[in-house]
Simulated assay, not measured.
Amino acid sequence: MNNCSIEKDIGIQCNKPELVAEDIVSDDMCMFYTGLPNKEVFNAIFSELDDAEERTNRSGNGENKGRPRTLRLVDEFLLVLIRLRLGLLLEDLAYRFRISKATCSNINKQWIMYLSVKLASMIPWISRRFIRENMPAKFKKYPHCRVIIDCTEFYTQNPQSLAAKTLLYSHYKSHMTWKALIGISPTGVITFVSDLWSGGISDKQITIKSGLLELCEAGDAVMADKGFLISDLTTPRGLHLIIPPMKFQRFNRRQVEETRRIANLRIDVERAMERLKNFRILQGVMPITMSKQASHILKICAALSNVHPPLIQDN
């Protein structure tokens, strides 16, 4: 019996993956493959996953642990990050890591559920006091702004069910989509990510269902696009809604200036969503079969986006 056969018998992988964690040596490589700014951040996040061995165990519990892991824990983590960052198909990842497609699929499912819980603290709802103490100078006209919100959509496949098609069809995108509400602080940190809802939901409905307003306190201000007609929701809570003036007639000079000022501040939430979609799994058309994982994937990508330098540099 040759060495390879012996290694197989004891559950050690014979063929080394094309890429392992030690191969990520430069910041550019780390950003390209994982979406993280450098290897130090990669190692720091992985070091916090102290219960990953147990929580991502696919071999059962008790004395019978079943077959050992095919990959090292750190390489499983790398595999999942590559899946999120580059949007590679499971078949491709299975080939690169020298594992079966079924094993690759199981690794992804277990890690997605695990990371969505473990990294939840990286999307912090920042206290009002902290926000006001660190309010960028450009928000001096809106010192009580707590969160800037907007919706974003992600393409998905055309379902077979007619009822599902009706719910998922987005008139804005002219396509089947999932829709999420994203909130950032005035400093540019993603502080709120809703679950994904069907693309046909309105901005007002998703604001209600997401629970965002329950997190705000009386006296806070919420900045949004003019499509968020939610003043009947914010006013009773003692919240101030900052939206551009509605154009019922020709704008006067003050209204033009206010529209320009709000647009310049709201652009940061667009930049945050652009950074979020640098994770290519959120680009293209996501399969319907990913519907149970999609919200978790979105929140993981948002958490990983928050490890990058702040979007707003206030001198």
Results as ranks from 00 to 15, higher is better:
N2G: 12
N3P: 07
C4P: 09
S5A: 14
D9G: 05
I10V: 15
N15V: 08
K16E: 14
E18L: 10
E18S: 15
A21W: 09
E22N: 13
E22F: 11
E22G: 05
D28V: 14
D28R: 13
N38C: 15
N38L: 05
V41Y: 03
D50Y: 10
A52R: 03
A52D: 04
R55E: 15
G62K: 12
E63M: 05
G66F: 04
R72C: 11
F77S: 02
R83D: 08
L84W: 01
L89A: 06
L93F: 03
A94W: 10
R98T: 08
K101Q: 09
I107K: 04
N108C: 14
Y114A: 11
Y114C: 10
K118L: 12
P124K: 02
S127D: 09
R129A: 13
A137N: 12
K140W: 09
Y142T: 03
C145I: 09
I149M: 04
F154M: 15
N158Y: 11
Q160G: 13
L162I: 14
A163M: 07
T166N: 14
Y172D: 11
Y172R: 08
S174V: 15
S174Y: 15
T177F: 07
W178I: 08
A180C: 14
G188V: 00
V193G: 07
S194W: 00
S198D: 12
I201W: 03
Q205E: 12
G211L: 06
C216I: 15
D220A: 06
V222N: 08
M223I: 10
A224G: 05
F228V: 06
F228K: 02
H240N: 14
P244Y: 01
P244Q: 10
P245R: 04
E257T: 10
E257R: 15
R260D: 12
R260P: 07
L265C: 04
L265D: 06
R266K: 09
R266W: 00
D268E: 07
V269Y: 01
A272M: 08
M273I: 02
K277I: 02
N278E: 12
F279S: 01
V285G: 00
V285A: 02
V285K: 03
I297Y: 05
I297E: 04
L298G: 06
I300Q: 05
C301Y: 03
A303N: 08
L304Q: 00
V307F: 09
H308N: 15
P310Y: 06
L311H: 01
L311T: 00
I312A: 09
D314H: 00
